[in-house]
Write a protein that binds this DNA or RNA. Structure first.
Lengths: 341, 341
DNA sequence: TTGTAAGCGTTATCAA
DNA sequence: TTGATAACGCTTACAA
């Protein structure tokens, strides 16, 4: 068994064509006669040729690589998004170099440097760590997903709509007080729209509401403790009132649900809960949780579609840079399960 | 702003050294005088040089790419494993090209062909789809994780030990009947060891046991329906008996738990449940679920350590191929929570 | 429709 | 310690 690989030169020698013709066979086969195409095809089989894209990259500059920076894969939202992005390989053919940044700015910068060293053609950024201004400065097609996006293209869920959907559902459930728990965040974060959508609906309908902007912590244990405190607080402030609670995501909604069930043996009629994301936990909870569902496959598809067009534009002889970043918005889907009436 | 990139040639011209010397500055700086190192360092800054690894790959053949084929990222086990594998970048510097195969053999073959075209140096395979014999035939360092591994190196959880741990815990809980639910699988699958470990403990201790080897389906709905049937069946076969149930994973354990709670309002004393994996759901369930915990970070680390050594060996002038594949085994950790006494 | 020759940005081999 | 030169495998003018 020989170690050396078959190259265009070998095929050329074997078929008595030039390397150029072999290259053309792969990139522009119609420019060869059918007969010669066949000859080369036979030679490929005879020599057991395996393509080598590194030479091609060097010569053409096209790597077909896209870099992805995610915060982590621990959260289902990110892993499912990555899953769906990877699946676009079938459509666009781009290969993905994946890094998990874990919220460390310098680490992410290092990853980006590494990605650039491999001549990636574009990036998809799910991580919120680096500013869109910095990302834009790399002068490379970039699409952000659900993160601050002032200077870069992006695809986001319509968070405002999601907030409205949640508030409207709780309104229909005849709650006395509508409560939204979320992290404190800058107004430039897409998720900020949820807070606005929620409060706008409450105000429009003169519904009493309570906005609890607080950090619930990073571990399950912290989440649990913080949410238990919130429950105590609500029961003091709103005894006997029917509470409609919009949690920042399904994981936290599930924690709340379990706390209530552990306390009362069941979900009391005085509580309605709605989550966000439609992650598996919302369906798999003891009481299936109503939620504002993000359309992850659609978001991933749109992100790659957008990135692909940016990368195509850049390959043209006369690329026209965008005057303004493009922002796509995907409507969430309200999913009614058993934690709301 | 110029588009063209700074190359070694530019640096050489700027510093009046040769390209070779510039290359040496990066690969073997000690062979230059400190003074000249400084000159070049200054030039890099002055010219804003960005390294380009494509040329290096072409010239050296070292891509520092590792291919990963996972079944999907939907299941927490896989996404967390990927997370931990990606994290080894900090240690080994290998970049990861990730594909999700979704159980389609031909698709996975296509992915592997693509990976080989990029001269990857090795592969980590979590997908069970292709036989280890086929994987070995690619003549590339390969490490399998928790899959059939006759002809390839691998890292697996000690499933036999896991099965014993589960059975022992249920024994301590004084169950009248020990039940293990799992899929029917070939004996070459690592998970088969769980069944053996479980039954061996039962036999050794003369404990009555019930092995239910059945396909629970691929969706939550199917899981739920199938497990509800199992519950009915058990209650008919073992009325009034204390049932100790070892489920194939935490997701299924949680489904069982929820079915019981929905039926009885709480987890009845006549049921003990233990899952497998220690995935978040086991901790986040209404009643925290006891489980046999897989040490995912350890497995990922060992897999890359093993793969790295295989890849290093292969780079030597006189590589010595392994006579036998290396199989590493990682001990699982029993985690006792509230579904067992 | 096909071929020639010059790159692409590094590293490797020799020689000095 | 440094340099000249030839790879590495493919693409791309330009020519025929």
């Amino acid at each position: 068994m020989k170690k050396q690989k078959v190259t265009f030169a070998d095929i050329a020698a074997y078929t008595h064509f030039s390397k150029t013709t072999i290259s053309r066979y792969f990139n522009n086969p119609d420019s060869l006669t059918l007969e010669n195409q066949q000859k080369i095809a036979d030679a490929l089989v005879a020599l057991d040729y395996k393509e080598n894209k590194v030479g091609r990259i060097l010569a053409s500059g096209r790597t077909e690589f896209v870099g992805i920076i995610i915060p982590n894969l621990y959260m289902h939202y990110y892993s499912e998004m990555l899953n769906q992005i990877l699946a676009t390989y079938e459509t666009y053919g781009y290969k993905f170099l994946v890094f998990a940044g874990n919220d460390m700015a310098d680490v992410e910068r290092k990853y980006i440097r590494e990605l650039l060293a491999y001549n990636i053609e574009g990036m998809i950024i799910l991580s919120p760590t680096l500013s869109s201004e910095e990302l834009a400065s790399y002068n490379l097609p970039v699409v952000g997903i659900e993160r601050e996006d002032q200077y870069i293209c992006s695809v986001n869920t319509d968070n405002y709509m999601g907030g409205m959907q949640a508030a409207s559902l709780l309104k229909k459930s005849c709650c006395d007080i509508l409560i939204h728990v979320n992290a404190r965040m800058p107004e430039t974060t897409p998720a900020f729209g949820r807070i606005q959508g929620f409060t706008d609906i409450c105000r429009e309908n003169n519904l009493p509401y309570d906005l609890t902007l607080t950090d619930l912590g990073n571990t399950f244990r912290e989440n649990r403790e913080n949410i238990m405190e919130l429950v105590d607080c609500w029961e003091q402030k709103y005894p006997d009132k029917k509470k409609g609670i919009f949690m920042p995501n399904d994981t936290h909604a599930n924690v709340l649900l379990n706390i209530l069930i552990q306390k009362y043996g069941k979900l009391p009629d005085t509580y309605q809960i709605i989550g966000f994301d439609n992650s598996p936990i919302s369906e798999e909870a003891v009481v299936p949780i109503s939620t504002v569902g993000q359309q992850i496959p659609v978001i991933a598809g749109e992100a790659m579609s957008l990135l692909s067009s940016l990368m195509d534009e850049r390959k043209k002889r006369k690329p026209v840079p965008l005057k303004e970043p493009i922002h796509k918005v995907i409507t969430p889907i309200l999913i009614r399960r058993s934690t709301t009436k």
